[in-house]
Amino acid sequence: MKMLTKDPLNLIIVGVGGQGNVMISSLIGRAFITEGYFVTIGETYGASQRGGSVMSHVRISKESQYSPLIPNGRADIILGMEPVETLRILQQFGNPDVITITNSKLVHAIGIEYPDLDDVVEAIKKLSAKLWLINATDEALKLGSAIFANTILIGALIGSGILPLDKESLDPILRESFPEEKLEANMLAFNKGMELVSRG
């Protein structure tokens, strides 16, 4: 069985309220629980869901329960559902070894001038040891709904090989997480995510 590259392994999932952060974090968390790990997840809940910045701190350990908040500068992996939010998290929690996977679709905020994607991506690159930039939203729309971007990103996270989880360990979790009628599309989305990172 694959091992954690670090203990605890600190993963931050970041996005905009309503995108589905909690879905991703709990799905990943449950996969690790099944494999016998200690998992702690700290999330932004409640009012902050409504279009605000949201993040989930996921901490995985073979040794013990960790706090639901990752110390500054100590993220190992950042999974971003929105590039500006990815950058915001990198700035606070990044370090020279951090690996970043991010959706490239900007989610606009009210009443502000939004930055250019190229600038944001350039800054993300500078702060990441490795970056996978994925157009998950467009791929999701091809599958019928932007919501599949979440499963695509999960697929990308697993496909990147940075977690000691593989498709087989995720499979039962995916199956119990999605309703029957959504399962097939989510499985396709998961595979799409894996495929997108395998290309580089």
């Binding site: 905009v16 279009g51 605000g52 500006v84 915001r88 905020a109 009443g111 930055p115 600038d119 800054a123």
Partner: peptide, 10 residues
């Protein structure tokens, strides 16, 4: 590059 994201109604 990281404009603040105000909470708003859905």
């Amino acid at each position: 590059y990281m404009p603040p994201r105000l909470m708003t109604f859905c």
